[in-house]
Design a protein around this nucleic acid. Structure first.
Length: 283
DNA sequence: ATGGGGGCCTGCCGGC
DNA sequence: TGCCGGCAGGCCCCCA
């Protein structure tokens, strides 16, 4: 599921039910996801109050009144669902955990937050809030694509002399944080740019266009509630609907969505990932 | 230093 | 129907 717009959607969904709420109980059904959970994670979460929720790149950060921050990454298949509340009435149901429900948080307002992740590429960690910027998973992330420091001059500097394709460069979280395979494909389509172009060969004008398109695509996707592939849902259980706006992603062999283009969407491999693009209008 | 590939997991889908 | 290969929204790590 989760690239920046999906993580942003999850954060917005969690904010009203978690902010300023006490975590009455944390249940941890296994010891690890991609990596082991931090020692005594359930105990360290229980009884703390969530002060605020933030997003950095594809990470969700929950600042707690214990001066620790819970860092959550959804990996490829992680989902967060809210249950236990109906029509403003809070009910504690103790339904048995479903398959791959790895962590559950019971909030003071009756909400139950469930983290489910079949492939377990996700991450959870706890560290002092004051040290989160230096957390090993956050320390070398590039700028937020929707923030002020992601600019045309910045991207020009970063791409200068690079021999890797623009596709690989935009997937590199050290260059810009939060894009994944879907949105990079969509951005390059909308910028009419071939994913195979070497990063260092792009004109200033072209890079400027990339910056604008990244902002536009991500903003639209967030407004749409993210993209729902497989059975990804928002925290509410609803589907996002940006997947209906895909121009190239997962459209191999279909005709190009540009109105004046007769091209056929092609799938190639780049750095081990599928890239979808129209060879005719992305040059 | 940089870029590419392997590996981590489970589930699903299409082909035989 | 069942089995098998290929593929999947991410990212760390190792090697050339």
């Amino acid at each position: 599921m989760p690239e920046l717009p999906e993580v942003e959607t999850v954060c917005s969904g969690l904010n009203p039910v978690m902010k300023n709420q006490l975590i009455l109980k944390a249940e941890v059904n296994r010891l690890d996801l991609r990596w082991p959970f931090p020692p005594l994670m359930a105990q360290r979460l229980t009884g703390t109050r969530v002060i605020r929720l933030r997003r950095r790149s594809k990470y969700i950060l929950l600042d707690l009144d214990s001066d620790e921050t819970l860092l959550v990454h959804l990996g490829m298949s992680g989902r967060v669902l809210i249950s236990g509340m109906q029509a403003g009435i809070f009910q504690h149901e103790n339904a048995a955990p479903k398959k791959h429900d790895h962590v559950e948080l019971y909030m003071e307002n009756g909400a139950r937050i469930t983290y489910n992740d079949p492939r377990r590429f996700g991450v959870m960690d706890l560290a002092p809030t004051s040290k989160m910027n230096n957390h090993r998973l956050l320390a070398s992330l590039g700028p937020e694509p929707l923030g002020n420091s992601f600019t045309e001059p910045y991207l020009i500097t970063k791409l200068k002399g690079k021999t890797a394709s623009i596709k690989s460069a935009l997937l590199d979280q050290r260059i810009v944080a939060g894009l994944g395979n879907i949105y990079v494909c969509e951005v390059l389509f909308r910028a009419h740019l071939s994913p195979r172009k070497k990063s260092g060969s792009l004109s200033k004008k072209c890079i400027s266009q990339i910056v604008r398109v990244i902002r536009k695509v991500l903003t639209e996707a967030i407004l749409a509630g993210g993209s729902s592939l497989k059975d990804y849902r928002q925290t509410s259980g609803e589907l996002g609907y940006f997947q209906h706006s895909f121009c190239v992603y997962d459209r191999e062999s279909l005709s190009c969505s540009a109105s004046n283009c007769s091209g056929i969407v092609k799938r190639i491999q780049q750095s081990g990932r599928s890239t979808f693009y129209c060879p005719k209008c992305q040059t």
